[in-house]
Design a protein around this nucleic acid. Structure first.
Lengths: 222, 222
DNA sequence: TAGATTGTTAATCGATTAACAATC
DNA sequence: TAGATTGTTAATCGATTAACAATC
């Protein structure tokens, strides 16, 4: 009936991924040398074209002013806001194998506005220990802890066989975002967001790119 | 004159990523239950449309026959060949922190045609030890070992500050593909392929998706 | 035959790139 | 002014989707 649709110009998925790359890249710059940066410089670091950078920013109104280069600090703050990193969120990790430990020692959570609240495992030998002052808890305590601290994000670093059950438990506990490091394609309700970190996919892609590069160099035989 | 242009219909990057996802998904299926699979079934597991699956396959001539569903085994073998996983490749890992150890214990390398040859670190306490029968070597021995075993792929799991230097060393040693787990955007020659596994990018994307989902549910205020 | 399927072309849709005004 | 820059629109390019013939 009414045509006043609140023009939902949907942001492309790839734009979001690139915004995250920009932010990652910018946050690694030595702040003394780089107070300002041009779309050309930023693009070259990620092997993109300057127009792409400007167009990505344009979806959100742009971050600069014609004639001036971008101020790195403005970019960082703006990107953080867009990506929702300005609001502190609570995080847990389930599965304290090597990968879980690696994640738990990852120092970059805090700068991203993420607060690591607790770690979980089923192994009695690990339960009660701490990593970087974060306690390892029994998986049975998960629902209570999630509820108490209002945890929204959980990383799954369990063995493959336990991944789906873990996801079910997380969903039941009220987790809204799952950072999935298992190779499984999890089944979850539509209001729960799953971000897959399928390592083997990256490795296969690398393999393909190596193969095709070699083919080009070898010439066209075969 | 001659029409025998080796029609280089370039394959989209996203198609390759999806092929890897298909293979990952298929290899997890219980083989007894799933001898055959339709494009519809496969698509639903990765939340895609059946047409997308068929079109992706079509780039390579297709894997099936009209009227029949795909044979899972044919798909697996075909995808492996396309992705270059049928040719055995040698792999090393540089940096034996938690993440390096996690990767080293990753059981899925062999099925992907990858042979883990050696691990490297600078810490004298680690050098000489073994993980799953793979020796931890001094980083100084890297060039010799790469040359001896004809290693083509290297994973970088060093601290951020060491990543670029490590990459330089790997390139000098003749490595052709770098699987980069550091947040740095490495600088490398054009004939070296870098596959970035920037974990924070995935986490930021998750954060964005959570934020936008919440906005939708909250209604249109603000 | 009816229903289900894949392969393949064409149409649609969306994302990237080019062009340029505005600004410093 | 000349050169460099961003914001923004339009054009181009490419990827996804729809449609349908062929097949079982």
């Amino acid at each position: 009936m009414t045509f006043e649709k609140p023009k939902k110009k949907k942001i492309p998925q790839m734009t979001i991924t690139r915004l995250a790359q920009y932010l990652n890249c910018l946050s690694l710059l030595p702040t003394e040398q780089y107070e300002e940066i041009s779309s050309k410089e930023l693009a070259s670091k990620i092997e993109l074209k300057p127009t792409q950078v400007r167009q990505d920013f344009h979806h959100f109104g742009g971050f600069g002013q014609a004639g001036y280069r971008y101020k790195v600090n403005d970019l960082i703050i703006g990107l953080e806001r867009i990506l929702g990193l300005d609001q502190q969120q609570k995080l847990i990790i389930v599965g304290m194998g090597h990968l879980g430990q690696a994640l738990a020692s990852y120092k970059n959570f805090e700068p991203l506005g993420l607060n690591l609240v607790a770690l979980f495992d089923v192994n009695p030998k690990l339960i009660g220990l701490s990593l970087r002052d974060v306690p390892i808890k029994d998986i049975d305590d998960l629902p209570a802890i999630v509820a108490k601290h209002n945890v929204t994000i959980a990383a799954i670093t369990t063995p493959t066989s336990a991944a789906q059950n873990t996801a079910n438990m997380l969903v039941a506990a009220g987790i809204k975002g799952i950072w999935n490091f298992s190779p499984v394609n999890l089944t979850t309700p539509p209001d729960v967001i799953v971000q897959n970190e399928h390592l083997s996919v990256g490795l296969m892609t690398l393999s393909y790119r190596l193969k095709t590069l070699n083919k080009q160099n070898d010439g066209e035989q075969e």
